[in-house]
Computed example of a mutant assay.
Amino acid sequence: MSRLDGKIAIVTGAGSGIGRATVDLFRGHGATVVGADLKGADVECDAGSEEAVKALIDEVVEQHGRLDVMFANAGVSGGFDGIFDQDENTWAEILRVNLIGPAMAIKHAAPAMKKSGGGSIIATASVAGLRSGAGGPAYTASKAGVINLVKIAAQQMSGANVRVNAICPGLIETGMTQFIYDHARAKGNEGEIGKLNPLRRGGEPEEIAAAALFLASDEASYVNGHALVVDGGLSSSHPYTRQVYGRTAS
């Protein structure tokens, strides 16, 4: 069954990982999809720039007459440095791409969707946005912001038939997390990846794409203002380590 027949969709961060998997899956379900990224996608776009995001949305609407799905997926990690190691510029860039970018996607996609009767906006958050222990300080703060962004946006879209939701992935092998996987493989510890969650494995980009497909489709017609966690059960418990000033202790 094609779940997105006739839908027009934009996916940012489409050059690799979750974004690329989502583009492929959406197209396989009948959607016309424009993938955007700094490189490696259909169009070049800086997802943290309001001007670039607006131009992308305007171009898609002009070419296709409507916009039904906006997946604001692009993001950067900024590494795992502690709060005393990340400077103002690092914070500003991570927040620009990870939080301001989705906000601008919502700002400019929602009016286009309202004109054509409604639509679905999805933003990539993270389990790091739920609690500490899954990312650096700026990254964690940005993803917590995304979770609350979709809630307030869903409320402010009241009456527009535009749904706004987030996905919170756990550890997924993408370009952003490749260094974790490469390090584990180099040490012969690949089998340890993901062992902190009950499924005892890392996730695949296609598993997040499947969640995005659900939220984009009419099957999720009553899902709104929600952060869908896809993490193998990782966030169902607390981390096994505690943070001590200046170091991490078991």
Rank of each mutant, 00 (worst) to 15 (best):
G79L: 14
L25G: 00
F26D: 00
A36E: 04
S49F: 08
R20D: 14
G48A: 08
E59K: 13
C45H: 04
L56W: 04
E59R: 10
S49D: 11
R27S: 07
S77Q: 15
T32Q: 11
G28L: 08
A52H: 11
A72R: 02
G19E: 08
E51T: 10
V61C: 04
S16Q: 15
E62W: 09
V76E: 13
G40M: 11
D46K: 02
E62K: 12
E50H: 03
S77C: 14
S77A: 15
D46S: 05
G75M: 11
L56V: 03
D46M: 01
R27V: 08
V69K: 02
E44K: 09
A36W: 02
K39L: 14
S77E: 15
D37Y: 01
I18R: 07
G19D: 09
G48F: 06
F26M: 05
N73P: 11
A55H: 05
A72G: 10
D46I: 06
D37G: 03
A21W: 10
A41E: 05
L56H: 03
L67C: 09
A52F: 03
G78P: 06
A21D: 13
S49Q: 06
V76H: 12
A41W: 05
A41N: 05
G17L: 03
V23A: 09
S77R: 13
S49G: 07
F71G: 00
E51V: 12
G75Y: 09
L56P: 01
V33S: 02
N73D: 14
L38Q: 10
D24P: 04
G30V: 08
T32P: 00
A36T: 02
L56F: 07
E62L: 06
D24F: 13
D37A: 06
G40S: 11
T32I: 07
V53S: 00
E51L: 05
G79R: 09
S77G: 15
H64Y: 14
I57P: 00
M70A: 08
D24M: 14
R27I: 09
E50Y: 05
V76T: 13
D24T: 15
D42S: 05
V43P: 03
F71D: 02
V33F: 07
K39R: 15
A47E: 03
L38G: 08
A41I: 08
S49L: 12
G78D: 14
D42L: 08
T22Y: 01
V33A: 04
Q63G: 11
S16F: 15
Q63N: 14
D58M: 08
L56C: 01
A72H: 07
G65D: 11
I57W: 02
F26V: 06
V53M: 04
L67Q: 07
Q63S: 12
K54I: 02
A31V: 04
T22D: 03
A31K: 01
G65S: 07
V43D: 02
G78M: 15
V43Q: 02
